[in-house]
Simulated assay, not measured.
Amino acid sequence: MVPKHLTSINDVAAASWDGLLAADYPFLSHGFIRALEDSGAVCAASGWQPAHRVVERDGQLQALLPLYLKDHSWGEYVFDWQWADAWERAGRAYYPKYLSAAPFSPVQGPRLVARDAEAAGALLDSLDGDLQAQRVSSLHLLFNTGAENDWLAQRGWLQRLGCQFHWYNREYTSFDDFLAACNSRKRKNFRKERQAIREQDIHFRWLTGEQLDAAAWAQFYPFYAATYYKRGQEPYLPPAFFTLLSSYCNANVRLLFAMQGERAVAGALFLVGGDTLYGRYWGCLEEYDRLHFETCFYQGMERCIAEGLKRFDAGAQGEHKLVRGFEPVLTQSWHKLQPGLHEAVGDFLLRERAGVEAYREDALSYLPFRRADQ
């Protein structure tokens, strides 16, 4: 089996791609990737050149891997800047590199999907061929959930651990049920934060389905873009991405506006897949007391409860999530690099791993839940 190199997700039929994926995971769906490509968010000019790989047998898809040829490390959330700097100082070019990930989305999910080990092996061997031919400096696969681990480890890829914070719906029927699971001091703090929103006369409006029209996205985009402009950066995603996402993945999208009277003062985008709510982008143009916590955390928790979802992934970073009930969760990525750099990175990852595991254990002590003796 010889893998095919795709220069666009549109080179493969949506039914074939999504049929092999066989999971309600929006960030690897044909529609999500197509929205990124059709909007120009990922392309050669943006440093995200599509280079997807698929394996076919008798006209049927046997394996797939979303893949990008990268000439920078922006938008990944697994940081390799030091590796790039070390390789450049050694007189070697770190870019381009291959990256398998959901662009701009540090969310766990499947990456290499295959019907069997033979198809997976053929696909990975093709990547090894490009690495050995020095067409790329390195191979990277980010935020996978583990189905690929054995295939990667057998071929010498290096595992890297990270830590995120996720909230779990323990069969709560209301937000008060969640509060009842917390100690009294934290309950008081949650109520105080939510009361601050009511005192500012802010309420919330969720949009789904046919409500996600062009006017809604035009209203949302300035909030999304403001988050980047405040950091002196250009937004990763153009306005067209959101309207295309709504068209291609409408059932997965949830849009939230914070309203003061009839005026929207903040916006947040969420996606639903399987039993999980994903909080992706948020922004506001003016500052309001506690608005970020309410919009990005508490509203999402209530949405999980209302829709019967089990997990809320609110984004990659933020230790402030711990005291609001988001539990530390180990994440993983995998890497294979040119000889010399590969061994040095392997030594670094062994040392880093112990620190990440210790960090997660320490983070557990900051959770707000009542102990058995309380």
Rank of each mutant, 00 (worst) to 15 (best):
R53K: 12
Y278W: 05
N169K: 10
A90P: 00
R198L: 14
I33A: 10
V12H: 00
A45H: 09
L112H: 04
P368A: 03
A86N: 11
S39T: 09
L330F: 07
G283T: 02
Q132W: 10
L124S: 09
G162Q: 04
Q164T: 11
S174W: 03
D116E: 10
C284K: 00
E319I: 06
S29C: 10
D11F: 00
K310Y: 12
R231I: 02
I197G: 03
P50I: 08
C304L: 03
D80C: 01
A90W: 03
R371A: 15
V253P: 04
L237H: 02
A122Y: 09
V2K: 14
F32I: 01
L139M: 08
F32P: 00
G40P: 04
K4S: 06
Y172W: 13
R280K: 13
W151S: 15
C182K: 06
D38Q: 15
A180Y: 08
R135V: 03
D58P: 03
S39Y: 12
R115M: 12
L61G: 03
W217D: 02
Q62M: 14
R198E: 13
A44V: 13
F104C: 02
R263T: 14
Y94F: 09
V55K: 06
K4H: 13
G261I: 09
P96V: 02
H320I: 09
R57K: 14
R111K: 00
M301W: 02
V12R: 06
E302W: 01
R324L: 00
A258H: 05
Q159C: 14
V136W: 04
Y172D: 09
F293K: 00
V113F: 07
K70C: 03
D11H: 11
A14F: 09
L158D: 07
L142S: 07
G273P: 06
G308W: 04
N252F: 05
D176Y: 08
G340W: 06
N149W: 11
I33N: 03
A251V: 00
A117T: 12
R135I: 01
S247M: 11
P328M: 06
K230H: 10
F326H: 11
D38E: 15
V55I: 08
E307T: 02
F270P: 06
L161Q: 15
V107I: 14
G59M: 01
R194F: 10
Y229M: 02
I9E: 07
V55N: 08
E262N: 15
P339F: 02
Y229K: 05
R231Q: 11
E319G: 12
R263L: 14
G47Y: 05
N144L: 06
E286L: 09
G121N: 05
G75L: 00
A114Q: 05
R170P: 08
G146V: 05
A14E: 14
Y359W: 10
L36Q: 06
A218D: 13
Q260W: 10
L291S: 08
L65M: 14
D362P: 00
W17A: 07
L152C: 11
W167L: 06
R231K: 15
